[in-house]
Computed example of a mutant assay.
Amino acid sequence: MSRKLPPTASVADQRENGKLFAPAAARNADAICTVLADHAPATGRALEIASGTGQHVVAFARALPDLRWHPTEIDPARRASIDAHAAEAALPNIAPAQQLDATEPGWAARWPPVDLVVLVNLLHLVSEPEARHILDGVASALVPGGVFVLYGPFRRSGTLTSDGDRRFDAELRSADPLIGYKDDLAVADWLRNSGLEPGGVIEMPANNLALVARKPV
């Protein structure tokens, strides 16, 4: 996946020692941790797709210490930031960041099975075919009974429900008409088509949603 996105799509400031800092990640980390605490398996391997700056995986690893976290990112500068945040946190349950473009068909074949997959704020930045490749890969990567937690902004039954969402979606589609907010009902159908069972929709801060799905046993 390679495309030019509007500056508002991913805001991160450079900090010391190679770390990047995203204000949005700082704001939503606790809320996502709460969802994970309620739905994630207690132990096992956790894969985070598009880990961004690394702030999230540190928060997740601290909140769920019995999971072994595997952050991934397509951008080498962000992989360096992930490793810098992890080194500063000095947590034993975060693996080094790995390169992964989950929009590629068949990406999961290169990964060992995992018990949990977490994806934050990516679907609105990719096209529908790319989104479906991501979800197909998630279904392949998960062990039976494994859990998928998907967080981000969505259309609600086809409708953008705030001025901020309408503005951001328009910016994204202006940069690339193939991307933009995905519909929550459509994503639920894509999850089912990928072989996952949608298990709930959770209202989150800033008009976001968390969708939880499980791979059948």
Rank of each mutant, 00 (worst) to 15 (best):
T8F: 13
H70G: 02
P112L: 03
S194T: 07
F60R: 02
L119C: 14
A95S: 14
I74S: 15
A40D: 01
E88A: 15
N93L: 02
E128M: 09
R110S: 13
Q55R: 00
A25G: 10
W107V: 00
Q55V: 04
A29T: 03
R110M: 06
V118N: 04
P96V: 11
S157H: 15
I49P: 05
R45D: 09
L122W: 01
N28S: 05
S51L: 06
D101R: 03
L91I: 03
S194M: 04
L5G: 07
L5P: 08
Y181K: 11
L172W: 08
L178D: 15
W111A: 00
E88H: 15
A26H: 06
D75W: 00
F148V: 10
A24D: 06
A89R: 05
R192N: 07
A90T: 09
A24T: 12
T8N: 14
D66H: 15
I49L: 13
S2R: 15
L122T: 09
A37D: 00
L47R: 09
L122K: 03
A50C: 12
A170M: 04
V147R: 13
G195N: 06
Q14S: 15
R155H: 13
P144A: 08
S2G: 13
A188V: 09
S10C: 15
H133Y: 08
E197C: 09
S127Y: 09
N28Q: 01
A84V: 10
A206L: 10
R110H: 13
V118K: 04
A12K: 12
R214M: 09
D101V: 00
I32L: 12
R167P: 05
P205D: 08
L64T: 02
I134E: 01
K182N: 08
G44V: 06
A12S: 15
L64S: 05
S2F: 14
L5N: 10
L211H: 06
Q55I: 11
V11Y: 10
D13G: 13
A12M: 13
T34M: 08
S2D: 15
A46C: 07
V120D: 01
V117T: 04
Q14F: 11
E73A: 00
A108S: 10
A188M: 11
N121Q: 02
A37I: 00
D169V: 07
A59F: 08
G180C: 10
P105M: 10
P96L: 09
V143M: 13
E48S: 05
L185W: 07
V118A: 11
F21K: 07
K182M: 10
V143P: 10
A131V: 08
D136I: 12
